[in-house]
Amino acid sequence: MLELRNLSIDFGKGASRVQAVKGISLSIAKGETVALVGESGSGKSVTGMALTRLLPEPPAFYAGGEILFEGRNVLGMNARELRALRGGKIAYVFQEPSTSLNPVFTVRSQIAEALHLHRPEVADVDAEVVHCLDMVGIVSPRQRMDDYPHQLSGGMQQRVMIAMALACRPQLLVADEPTTALDVTVQAQILDQMRQIKQQTGMAMLLITHNFGIIGGIADRVAVMFRGKIVEEGATATVLGNPQHAYTKALIGCIPQLGQHRRRLTTIDHDALGALC
C-alpha cells in the first residue's frame, strides 16, 4: 500500500544543508503495523511527515527517491490531491497532545472539521463525533465534545487526537511518539486502545517511537533508524529477540526491565556506531 523508495530529505541549502533522511526504503502493507524506532534526532518524524509532504518547504527539500501510496507518487501530487490524502487516507497523531489541539476550538468542531473535509456525506455530524469519541474510550462523549482541549487531561487529549484521526477512516495512521508525553499508566491505556482500534478497523499503522519497550504487542515489523538511515529491519519478534546491528542492541539495552535487577543502563557510543554504519 505504501512504499518508500530510496527517499532522501534535506533541510536547508548550501553550507547549512542537513541531510535528515538519507535514502531509506520501507513498505507497509494493508492492515500491517510497522514500528519505526530510533533515538531522538534520527529522522523518524521527518520520515513520517514526508509521507504526505507535511514538511514546510523550504527549508525541507525532497532530494531524491519516491513515496508511493497505492501506486501513486506522493511527491508528484498537486495541492488538492495532497489535501485529499492528508487526513483522508493517511492520518496523524502527534507527540504533544496539549499543543497539538487548537486551544480555541471545541473538541466537536475540530473533529467535525475533519469530517467535513473528507466525509461530507455524513449527515449527522454530531452523532459521528460522538461515535468517534466513543471508539477511543472517552466516557460520556456527548458532554465531552463541547469541551475545549484545556479542559481535558493529557490522556484524554491524546484520545481526542486519535478520534480525530480515525474520524475519516484513513487507511494508514501515522502515530508519531503518541505516548511519549504521557504518564506511564496512561501510556499503557492509550497503547491498548490503539491495539483494539487496529483490530476493529483493520487499518495500517506506522508507529514512530524511540522506545523499543512499547512496540512488543502491537507492531508486526520493526525498522530501526539511525542518523537518517534504516540500519535494521525485520519481524518484531526477530529483531527484539535477536538484534543484529550494534545500534539496535544498544537501543534494546536501554529499556529498563521490570522485575529484573537494575543493570547499568546502556548508553550509546555514537562515534563507535557511526564508524560501523
Binding site: T52, L54, A79, R83, A84, L85, R86, G87, G88, A91, Y92, F94, E96, T99, S100, L101, N102, P103, E113, A114, L117, H118, M161, M164
Partner: peptide, 15 residues
Amino acid sequence: GQDYIRTARAKGVSS
C-alpha cells in the same frame, strides 16, 4: 509555528 497548525494541515485543511 504552533503544533496545532501542523495538526490542521495534517487533517487536509487548505493553506
